[in-house]
Design a protein around this nucleic acid. Structure first.
Lengths: 111, 111
DNA sequence: TAGCAAACTCTACAAGATAGAGTTATAGTC
DNA sequence: GACTATAACTCTATCTTGTAGAGTTTGCTA
């Protein structure tokens, strides 16, 4: 095993969006959520690749939704956090908290 | 440009250790700091590779230290955060803060 | 100059991040 | 029922990060 121990940077962001949007969040809304909250552009490929990895690791559950009466469109795949996903987020956060604890950043210009 | 926009997971951790230890931190102490604070084993290769990338991006400054009268050993390379590194840490933190904001994690077992 | 110790370099590869064109599953229209 | 519009997702390819650990270098001590 090379790593597998920790959430990657983007994995963490995506997992948090899933947490926020569950149980009705799905690929497209998760993507939108991340873009809105972070101002960061997210390509479709990046999003789904990450979601797949997260699912493979047992962090998110995927539940196929029914067709909806809107105006065409493929059925959604609803996403939810699994217990292991909760633990992973928790662990990542605590690790960062410990690293940040007591660190004071001098502002680059004009303090 | 493929990414380059954000700090990777381990980059962030290492950069924080540099911040905490500067201006006298160097490879070996940064490694030790990360291991102690996070409980995560850090291989020498992983550490220096990451440090190199961080330096290449202009996030950390490397200052060769003088030989020290201890008991042999190669001269240290002291590390310090550059302004861009401060900004990068700041940006990463704010992005995560926005993602975490308001998220409540249900504990896996026993609340 | 041999031996030892600390600190760092190198090489190779696995895992994660990214992009965007292309595909698929519906629903509406005629 | 064929055709078209849509939303959502799949695929392939490539670049960046993360990881390991053996090996090298520098300089002290004997």
């Amino acid at each position: 095993m090379a790593k597998g121990q920790f959430l990657g940077e983007f994995e963490q962001v995506v997992l948090l969006a899933v947490a926020r949007l569950e149980p009705t969040g799905y690929g497209a809304t998760v993507r939108q959520e991340v873009e809105e909250r972070t101002g960061r552009p997210v390509s479709v490929g990046a999003l789904y690749a990450t979601l797949d990895r997260l699912a493979a690791k047992g962090y998110v559950a995927v539940r196929p939704g029914p067709a909806e009466p809107e105006r065409g469109g493929r059925p959604k795949r609803f996403l939810a956090l699994k217990p292991a996903g909760v633990d992973a987020l928790d662990a990542s956060r605590h690790m960062l908290d410990r690293m940040w604890d007591g660190v004071e950043l001098r502002r680059s210009a004009s303090g």
